[in-house]
């Protein structure tokens, strides 16, 4: 267990930049994850979206390897398929529209980071490339997720102790 009292004492003597570049994602990523299995049907996926209210869900295979993500935009596209503008009538979208499992509709190239990535590096990437969340992958397996609100919370805490 980390002794937060000691940690705060250490922090108070160091600059924000130093602490930020030393803190690793592993320490504040969300580990209790809601995931979608790559073989889940569309109905199962819709149930998940109805039950929880996250924007994006990681998709994993039976070995818990991250294989993709499904977000609200994809679900909206599928639900409103008849209203899709012509610009959306691409081959890839057509494949998504006709898909019946998570594997067929997911975004199969999610950007992931390591749990040992530093907080500052993750923040840099989020800001530079307008990414809202990262799946955290260790040795191919999904171990967590981190979103902008988690990062803001941590940075705010750090700033507070600056």
């Amino acid at each position: 267990m980390v002794d937060h009292g000691d940690e705060d004492c250490i922090r108070c003597q160091r600059s924000f930049a130093e602490m930020c570049s030393e803190m690793v994602i592993r320490d504040f990523m969300t580990k209790d994850l809601v995931t979608i299995s790559e073989n889940d049907s569309i109905d199962q996926i819709l149930e998940t979206f109805d039950k929880y209210h996250f924007h994006t869900y990681p998709v994993v295979n039976e070995d818990n390897v991250l294989v993709g993500t499904i977000d609200r935009d994809i679900i909206l596209k599928i639900l409103l398929v008849h209203r899709a503008p012509r610009i959306e009538h691409t081959h890839l979208n057509a494949v998504v529209f006709q898909g019946d499992t998570a594997k067929a509709i997911m975004l199969s190239h999610p950007v992931s980071i390591s749990p040992d990535e530093h907080l500052c590096d993750a923040v840099d990437m989020m800001l530079k490339h307008k990414i809202d969340r990262f799946c955290i992958v260790d040795d191919g397996k999904l171990v967590g997720i981190i979103c902008k609100p988690d990062i803001i919370k941590e940075v705010y805490k750090l700033r507070g102790s600056d």
Binding site: H82, H91, A94, Q98
Partner: peptide, 20 residues
């Protein structure tokens, strides 16, 4: 294929055997 995707969607034929 993009030219006929609208028709396949409208006719509910995108997921059919010939559509796939």
């Amino acid at each position: 294929i993009g030219v006929v995707v609208r028709t396949l969607i409208d006719m509910d034929y995108l997921s059919s055997k010939p559509g796939s």
